[in-house]
């Protein structure tokens, strides 16, 4: 049976080197390019007719926009409308990465921890910088819950700091682990299908069900990623 981890291998398509860094265009980069092209297609071609009664593509673009805008508004609160492009970029990049990865023989760039941690750290840095900019020193008040007894401070502050620092880790590992686990499972059961011959019908059925489940996971994880981004961005607007 084929190694179920081989599907995550990076293949160089166009070798590029900048200085001592290998920044070759790989299968991962190709999927990012396809995702980027699809996003542009959806939001440029889809909105080119500017119809009052939207067609399919325009309807999809509007729905994704309103979905994201409502999510940001509901979770990040008042004055968060300026974060919609940022959250939407994250949502779409993750969503298209997850969905495109489910096409057989393609590649899931969100199944690589380096990609998810880069996104999560970027969110973390953005949240910290914006919080410092908006609240100044008041930013550090968020590490002590208001109304808590002061003698609990030595206990509460380390916990709050730790949970804050662990945000990018939990955010990135959640997405990475979900994507990787799903693809490994699919590969394993697909392998069983081949290996078991006639009895392969059982794992094949499972693969079909699992594919549907993975589509759900792909959507859900993109949603969760963007939702948590919105929740984290709330800290930049509201003092605790």
């Amino acid at each position: 049976m084929e190694n179920p981890l081989r599907q995550f291998a990076i293949h160089t398509l166009i070798p590029i080197h900048i200085g001592s860094y290998d920044v070759s265009f790989t299968n991962s980069s190709l999927l990012m390019l396809i995702a980027f092209a699809l996003i542009i297609f959806l939001f440029y071609v889809g909105t080119s007719r500017k119809a009052v009664v939207p067609g399919r593509l325009q309807s999809a673009a509007e729905m994704i926009y309103e979905f994201t805008a409502n999510m940001v508004e509901d979770n990040a609160g008042h004055g968060s409308a300026k974060y919609v492009p940022f959250v939407m970029s994250i949502f779409l990049v993750v969503l298209f990465g997850n969905i495109l990865g489910l096409i057989p023989y393609s590649f899931t760039y969100t199944s690589h921890i380096i990609v998810t941690i880069a996104l999560a750290l970027m969110i973390f840095v953005v949240v910290v910088l914006l919080s410092l900019k908006n609240h100044g020193v008041g930013f550090f008040k968020m590490f002590f819950p208001p109304g808590a007894p002061i003698f609990l401070a030595p206990l509460l502050i380390p916990i709050e700091v730790l949970s804050f620092v662990f945000r990018p880790i939990s955010l990135s590992v959640r997405l990475f682990a979900n994507m990787m686990a799903g693809h490994v499972m699919l590969q394993l059961f697909a392998g069983f299908t081949v290996a078991l011959g006639l009895f392969g019908i059982l794992p094949l059925t499972f693969v079909v069900l699992l594919t549907g489940f993975e589509i759900l996971v792909a959507l859900l994880q993109a949603y969760v990623f963007a939702l948590l981004t919105s929740i984290y961005l709330k800290d930049t607007l509201e003092a605790h």
Binding site: L5, R6, F8, A9, I10, T12, I16, I18, Y21, D22, V23, S24, F25, T26, S28, S29, M32, L33, Y109, S111, H112, I113, I114, V115, A118, L119, F176, M180
Partner: peptide, 15 residues
């Protein structure tokens, strides 16, 4: 392959 640091630079660059 996720833990192979050789591809990190390329992935970060294109991401």
């Amino acid at each position: 392959p996720q833990l192979d640091p050789h591809s990190f630079a390329s992935q970060l660059f294109w991401l």
